[in-house]
Lab assay of single mutants.
Amino acid sequence: RDLEAFAERFKQRRIKLGVTQADVGSALANLKIPGVGSLSQSTICRFESLTLSHNNMIALKPILQAWLEEAE
């Protein structure tokens, strides 16, 4: 599925960039996405391991996609 593929790709890119889950969570606040502050390390972990609810995964995907584009 698309979400699973993105979560795996996100994790691989994050590791390759040398960024921790906690770093991603705090960096999201710097993107200044309306309504989005920082996220906890555990939320990033649960996204990568696909243990969040489907609706949460869908909500987080564009936010994490934006971070990934900014980081690369």
Rank of each mutant, 00 (worst) to 15 (best):
R1G: 14
R1E: 15
D2C: 04
D2H: 04
D2K: 00
D2P: 07
D2W: 09
L3G: 00
L3W: 07
L3K: 00
L3A: 00
E4I: 13
E4K: 10
E4D: 07
E4T: 13
A5W: 04
A5R: 13
A5L: 14
A5I: 13
A5E: 06
A5T: 08
A5H: 11
A7E: 04
A7V: 15
A7F: 00
E8D: 09
E8F: 06
E8W: 08
R9V: 10
R9G: 12
R9D: 15
F10V: 03
F10R: 01
K11Q: 06
K11Y: 01
K11C: 03
Q12R: 12
Q12Y: 04
Q12A: 14
Q12T: 14
R13T: 09
R13S: 13
R13P: 00
R13C: 04
R13E: 12
R14V: 00
R14A: 01
R14S: 01
R14P: 00
R14C: 01
I15K: 14
K16I: 13
K16N: 03
K16Q: 13
K16P: 00
L17H: 00
L17Y: 01
L17P: 00
L17A: 05
L17T: 07
G18L: 03
G18W: 01
G18H: 07
G18S: 03
G18Q: 04
V19E: 04
V19C: 14
V19D: 03
T20F: 00
T20K: 09
T20V: 00
Q21V: 13
Q21T: 14
Q21H: 15
Q21N: 06
A22W: 07
D23W: 04
D23T: 11
D23G: 10
D23V: 05
D23A: 09
D23K: 15
D23P: 02
V24K: 01
V24S: 01
V24A: 12
G25P: 04
G25E: 15
G25A: 13
G25Y: 05
G25C: 15
G25D: 04
G25R: 07
G25M: 08
G25F: 04
G25S: 15
S26K: 09
S26Y: 12
S26C: 13
S26G: 09
S26R: 14
S26P: 02
S26F: 12
S26N: 15
A27E: 12
A27W: 09
A27Q: 14
L28Q: 00
L28F: 08
L28C: 11
L28W: 03
L28E: 03
L28I: 15
A29E: 08
A29K: 14
A29N: 10
A29Y: 09
N30L: 07
N30R: 09
N30V: 05
L31E: 10
L31R: 11
L31P: 05
K32N: 15
K32S: 11
K32E: 14
K32G: 08
K32V: 13
K32C: 09
K32Y: 14
I33D: 08
I33T: 06
I33S: 07
I33Q: 05
I33A: 07
I33E: 08
P34F: 09
P34R: 08
P34L: 07
P34V: 06
P34A: 07
P34W: 04
P34C: 02
P34Y: 04
P34M: 09
G35A: 06
G35L: 06
G35Y: 02
G35R: 09
G35Q: 04
V36K: 04
V36D: 07
V36C: 05
V36R: 03
V36Q: 10
V36P: 06
V36A: 09
G37C: 10
G37E: 08
G37A: 11
G37T: 09
G37R: 11
G37Y: 05
S38I: 10
S38M: 13
L39K: 10
L39A: 05
L39D: 05
L39W: 05
L39F: 09
S40T: 15
Q41F: 06
Q41D: 12
Q41K: 14
Q41C: 06
S42F: 04
S42N: 07
S42I: 07
S42T: 12
S42W: 06
S42L: 09
S42V: 10
T43A: 07
T43R: 03
T43N: 06
T43D: 10
T43S: 06
T43K: 03
I44T: 00
I44C: 03
I44F: 00
I44M: 01
I44R: 00
C45P: 05
C45W: 05
C45F: 12
C45V: 13
C45A: 14
C45Y: 15
C45S: 14
C45G: 14
R46D: 15
R46T: 04
R46S: 15
R46M: 10
F47N: 01
F47G: 01
F47C: 08
E48V: 00
E48S: 03
E48F: 00
S49M: 04
S49H: 03
S49D: 11
L50S: 14
L50K: 10
L50G: 14
L50R: 11
L50A: 13
L50Y: 04
T51E: 12
T51G: 09
T51M: 15
T51W: 01
T51P: 00
L52H: 02
L52A: 01
L52T: 02
L52V: 02
L52C: 01
L52S: 01
L52D: 04
S53A: 09
S53F: 01
H54W: 10
H54G: 06
H54A: 13
H54F: 11
H54Q: 14
N55R: 12
N55F: 05
N55W: 05
N55A: 15
N55D: 13
N55S: 14
N55H: 06
N56M: 06
N56L: 15
M57P: 00
M57E: 03
M57G: 05
M57W: 05
M57T: 02
M57N: 09
M57K: 01
I58F: 07
I58M: 10
I58Y: 04
I58H: 08
I58G: 07
I58P: 01
A59S: 11
A59E: 09
A59I: 14
A59V: 08
A59T: 12
A59G: 09
A59K: 12
A59R: 12
L60G: 02
L60V: 12
L60N: 02
L60E: 01
L60Y: 11
L60I: 15
K61T: 13
K61L: 10
P62G: 03
P62Y: 01
P62T: 04
I63A: 12
I63N: 03
I63M: 05
I63V: 13
L64E: 02
L64Q: 02
L64P: 00
Q65T: 09
Q65V: 06
Q65Y: 15
Q65N: 06
Q65E: 14
A66G: 11
A66I: 09
A66V: 09
A66M: 07
A66K: 13
L68D: 03
L68A: 04
E69N: 08
E69W: 07
E69D: 06
E69I: 07
E69C: 12
E70W: 04
E70F: 03
E70N: 02
E70Q: 13
E70K: 15
E70A: 12
E70D: 08
A71N: 08
A71F: 13
E72A: 03
E72D: 05
E72L: 01
